[in-house]
C-alpha cells in the first residue's frame, strides 16, 4: 500500500436489520452505508459532509470498527480490520480513537477527569505504576489547555468547551494515529468552536494525526480539511481535494448543499444564488431506484431512474457519482 495512505476503505457496506416482526421472513434493511470506498492519507484531514441520516456517522464508526461491517474491507496499513474479532482488534484500538459530539453523554458523570483520561491507558495496560500513569495524564491535561488540579474534578464542573477538551485528552491518551471527530463542535458556541478547532489543528501539526472530520458545518470543513467527501443516503456522491471541490463542484447535490449555507457577509449574500431543493431526504429503508438523489435533483434524466451511477474519476483527484456531471466534465476538460 502507498506509504502516504494510513487507512483504505473498500466497498464498505453497513446494513442494519430493522425488521419490525420477530418471525417475519422478509428482512427490512436500513442501508446506512452502501458501497463506500475512500483513502485516508497520513497526517491529513478527510472531511465528511452530508445531512442527518446520510450515513456519515455510521461510516466513521464502522471505520474504527465500533460496528462489524456487512461487507467490504477496512485496511489499516497492511491489516484488514473488517473480519477481526474484538480480541484481535485490541492492538489496533489504541491506534484509532474517537471524539464525540455530545460531551455530556460521552463522559461518565461519576468518574473524575483523571480517571476518564486514564481509562484507555488502563484497558491497554500501558503503565505498571500509578506514578507513570499520573505523569502522562497531567501532561495530557496541560496539553489540551486545562490545569493539573482539574484532574480530581467531575465532568459537570466544566463548561461545554472544556468537556470537549477532556474528550480530546482521552482520545490522545494512547497516542493514536487516527481520530474520528464526529461533529466535535456542533454543540458548542461560536467563540468556543474556534478554540476547539485551533486545538485540533495544533495537535495534528505536532503529532502527525490523521483525522476523519464528520460535520454538517460546510465552512468549518472547508477550513480544516485537505480532502472532502459528500455523502447522500448512504452513498459517497462526490469526493475531491478541498480546493478542487469548493471551486469546481460537479454533483448537483454538492452544489445545492454549498449554496444552501447562509452567508453572513451582506454583499456575498446578495450576490449568491441559493438553490432550494424540493422535499425531504428519502428514507434509507426504501431508497429510490437508480441514483439516490434523483427525487430531489433539479436535472433528472430517464437513465437516473434505472442505473445507479458509479463514482468516476474525472481527474485532479476528483471523483463524482452522477450520470451527467461525470460525462460533461470529462469532455469539457479534454478539450
Amino acid at each position: 500500500m502507498d506509504d502516504a495512505v494510513l487507512m483504505r476503505v473498500e466497498n464498505l457496506k453497513m446494513h442494519f436489520d430493522v425488521s419490525k416482526r420477530l418471525f417475519s421472513k422478509k428482512k427490512t434493511l436500513l442501508k446506512a452505508v452502501d458501497d463506500v470506498s475512500l483513502s485516508l492519507r497520513r497526517g491529513r484531514t478527510f472531511g465528511l459532509v452530508g445531512e442527518s441520516g446520510c450515513g456519515k456517522t455510521t461510516l466513521g464508526r464502522t471505520i474504527v470498527r465500533l460496528y462489524k461491517p456487512t461487507a467490504g474491507r477496512i485496511w489499516y496499513s497492511d491489516a484488514d480490520l473488517s473480519p477481526l474479532s474484538d480480541a484481535a482488534l485490541m492492538p489496533y484500538r489504541s491506534k484509532m480513537q474517537m471524539i464525540f459530539q455530545d460531551s455530556f453523554s460521552s463522559l461518565n458523570p461519576r468518574m473524575m477527569v483523571g480517571d476518564i483520561i486514564a481509562e484507555p491507558l488502563r484497558i491497554q495496560h500501558r503503565f505498571a505504576s500509578a506514578r507513570e500513569e499520573r505523569e502522562l495524564v497531567e501532561a495530557l491535561v496541560e496539553r489540551i489547555g486545562l490545569r493539573k488540579d482539574h484532574i480530581s474534578r467531575y465532568p459537570h464542573e466544566f463548561s461545554g468547551g472544556q468537556r470537549q477538551r477532556i474528550g480530546i485528552a482521552r482520545a490522545l491518551a494512547n497516542t493514536p494515529e487516527f481520530i474520528v471527530c464526529d461533529e466535535p463542535i456542533s454543540a458548542l458556541d461560536v467563540s468556543i468552536q474556534a478554540q476547539v478547532i485551533n486545538l485540533l489543528l495544533d495537535l495534528q501539526d505536532q503529532m502527525g494525526l490523521t483525522y476523519l472530520f464528520v460535520s454538517h458545518d460546510l465552512s468549518m470543513v472547508r477550513h480544516i480539511s485537505h480532502e472532502v467527501g459528500v455523502m447522500y443516503l448512504g452513498h459517497m456522491v462526490e469526493t475531491a481535494p478541498v480546493h478542487e471541490l469548493y471551486s469546481h463542484m460537479l454533483h448537483p447535490y454538492t452544489e445545492a448543499l454549498m449554496s444552501a449555507v447562509p452567508q453572513a457577509d451582506p454583499d456575498m449574500a446578495e450576490k449568491s444564488r441559493r438553490i432550494i431543493l424540493q422535499g425531504d431526504v428519502p428514507t434509507p429503508i426504501d431508497p429510490p431506484s437508480g441514483c439516490p438523489f434523483r427525487t430531489r435533483c433539479p436535472y433528472p434524466k430517464p437513465i437516473c431512474e434505472q442505473v445507479m451511477p458509479a463514482l468516476q474519476d474525472v481527474g485532479h483527484g476528483h471523483f463524482v457519482a452522477c450520470h451527467q456531471a461525470a460525462g460533461s466534465n470529462s469532455s469539457a476538460r479534454s478539450i
Binding site: 444552501a260 447562509p262 432550494i276 425531504d280
Partner: peptide, 11 residues
C-alpha cells in the same frame, strides 16, 4: 434543521 431544509424555511 439540515442546511437544505434550513434554506427552504428561510425562503
Amino acid at each position: 434543521l439540515d442546511v437544505t431544509i434550513q434554506a427552504q424555511i428561510l425562503d
